[in-house]
Write a protein that binds this DNA or RNA. Structure first.
Length: 267
DNA sequence: ATGTCGTGGACGCCACGA
């Protein structure tokens, strides 16, 4: 089975490109992030014409996550059990955002995740990001403990660069989000409960990235960040036969600012 | 100087988020 994750940065602006890519790469399951649309705006029919079923959650033009699968799509879950919400106004109750959707595809539990960006080290969004990751880790630990034989994949845009090798210039990110120690600690905490980055052994760095900012000619200058990950439970990791980052998909007009990340499994 | 994108609102540009 071929599983991929891709922050598509609007599913409507890139439907043709996404579908072309799915067919060309023979991908069975695609987790998407930043679909940037409400459920009723999602181009379900276009995916269904090609044999994919889609589970999506989108509440506004922000965020939005989906899983498209041609190998089954069962037990769809919107959000994880303890997923925190966000509110910039302390008087207003925090609201859940469209940042997590889970489904079982050919026996694999797949979670498509869009971790909060954090925005700035002293922004409420940064605290929200750390809390979001901590709650996800607690729930993901519980899932793996309850069913160790169940392959689980936590995939998506984590908005964290775990090591200095994962950014083009560590000094550039000092005082910014994505490379701060609390964020890196929150990311590494997943490995402490058994989830591992299954792509890195097949795509060693440094200088291997999944995201390049649209501005400043970051892509041609090879100034990117590695922030999109597939973290697999032990049962998932044991089935991985290969992985790659499709850097070519970042090229050309109409590309997302993220590249797809692909994992091949022996199921 | 976010210099690029994509979204929605009430436009024909602005605000917002990344």
């Amino acid at each position: 089975m071929r599983l991929a994750t891709w922050n598509v940065n609007s599913v409507r602006a890139r439907t043709d490109r996404i579908l072309d890519w799915l067919q060309r790469t023979d991908t069975d399951v695609l987790a998407m992030q930043e679909t940037k649309c409400k459920d009723e705006q999602f181009p379900y029919e276009r995916f269904e014409e090609l044999g994919y079923r889609v589970a999506h959650v989108g509440l506004s033009q922000w965020n939005g996550v989906a899983i498209a699968s041609r190998v089954g799509l069962d037990d769809v879950q919107i959000g994880f059990e303890d997923q925190p919400g966000f509110s910039k106004d302390p008087e207003v109750d925090p609201a859940l955002e469209a940042r997590a959707i889970g489904a079982t595809c050919a026996g694999v539990r797949v979670w498509s995740l869009y971790v909060p960006n954090g925005r700035d080290l002293n922004d409420p969004h940064y605290t929200y990001k750390l809390d979001w990751l901590a709650k996800l880790r607690a729930d993901a630990h519980a899932w793996a403990t309850a069913a160790p034989e169940q392959p689980i994949a936590l995939v998506g845009d984590w908005n964290v660069a775990p090591t200095d090798d994962d950014v083009w210039d560590p000094a550039f990110f000092e005082g910014k989000t994505h490379t701060s120690q609390p964020e890196r600690d929150a990311f590494h905490a997943f490995t402490e409960v058994g989830y591992t980055d299954v792509v890195r052994p097949h795509a060693p760095g440094p200088g291997v990235y999944t995201y390049w900012d649209y501005t400043q000619l970051r892509f041609p200058k090879k100034q990117g960040m590695r922030i999109d990950f597939v973290l697999g439970s032990p049962a998932f990791a044991a089935r991985v036969t290969g992985a790659e980052i499709d850097r070519n998909e970042r090229k050309g007009k109409g590309a997302s600012d993220h590249a797809p990340v692909i994992v091949d499994l022996d199921l």
